[in-house]
Design a protein around this nucleic acid. Structure first.
Lengths: 187, 187
DNA sequence: ACCTGAACACCGTTCAAGT
DNA sequence: ACCTGAACACCGTTCAAGT
């Protein structure tokens, strides 16, 4: 039967989860779908566009969150729930290929505006927060996956995960505090 | 004559500046040096290690800066002074291959400590700042290089560059303010 | 010790030709 | 409209063999 865009994205997402971003190639994806490599280029202009579509799938639902902290936590959760999710979305965002990340940026900008910051500075503050969340989570995920390959998690959840949550929250608060200070100055 | 590590890194840096990170391949570098591709693997274990060495070359001098703002500005300047510098260093840092970035992290941690933050939180704050500088500069550089390829800079320096400086400084202040707030709480 | 040559196992992308 | 087959122009890495 016919190949649909969403089938391709789903197969790609499965490949990502099972084998990681390094093994997510156009040729391998085509093999998985039992089509020739060229077939993918009827549905997607290039690999970057496909990666953007996977990013949007990973981020499904995140743009509907409200408030800086809420958006950031849900963004991080979404990234961590797929192998190499942070790296993939980070790359797609940098390449301007993830419309979900653009929405998230808009939602964050609005959230910052509501604290009383003018819209030009609000967008800057929102970008700043996004850089942090992506950078932190790429880092966190690479460590997580690295020692998940080694010794299999001794006493999980509490020791490693909660610590990362606390670390993430600390950095996030640094911004929120910074934003509140800048708002206090400008008014 | 013999091939030395530093010659390889220099040739690689030149290749980067002239053609960008996408064309910085082991094979192309070997061609430029008039050696076989395999020769490079006598001096470097793999491509990542070589990229790390280029990163360290790009960041030469930055770790000797002092103070959060000073380090961050010099880091950004170093990244912007080479084609795709931000992307390269960002990738090397994520892969744990840049010792210069580790030094920079240490310097930033010390600078934050001196404001009165305990060392555990100081390291977190330092990482947070690094994520911001790298994220911001990768973004800035990709835009810069994108419209440098298009219309050739209308009335430079003032309109584009100064604005980016101001934007960079704004995000940076968000942290420094946030750090000061957290220090005020903890003491 | 340092390097060559040649191979291995792949890539992304294009495009005439088929259905 | 949608896909195949085959090609184009590459990759990173390894390793026996040479000097």
């Amino acid at each position: 039967m016919q190949l649909h865009k969403c089938d391709v994205v789903e197969a790609a997402a499965n490949l990502l989860d099972e084998y990681g971003i390094a093994d997510l190639t156009m040729r391998r994806l085509a093999r998985e779908l039992n089509v020739s490599p060229g077939a993918l280029y009827w549905h997607f202009a290039n690999k970057q566009e496909l990666l953007g579509a996977i990013s949007d799938r990973i981020l499904d639902g995140v743009p509907s969150a409200r408030g800086v902290a809420d958006v950031c936590h849900r963004l991080r959760d979404a990234l961590l729930s797929h192998t190499d999710g942070a790296e993939l979305v980070s790359a797609s965002f940098a390449a301007g290929q993830s419309s979900a990340m653009k929405q998230i940026l808009a939602v964050l900008t609005e959230a910052v505006s509501e604290v009383g910051v003018d819209s030009a500075h609000a967008e800057l503050a929102a970008r700043t927060v996004v850089y942090y969340v992506l950078g932190f989570t790429v880092d966190e995920q690479s460590r997580l996956q690295w020692d998940a390959a080694g010794a299999e998690l001794p006493e999980w959840q509490s020791v490693l995960t909660d610590d990362a949550n606390a670390r993430f929250g600390f950095g996030l608060r640094l911004f929120v505090d910074g934003i509140n200070v800048s708002q206090a100055i400008f008014e």
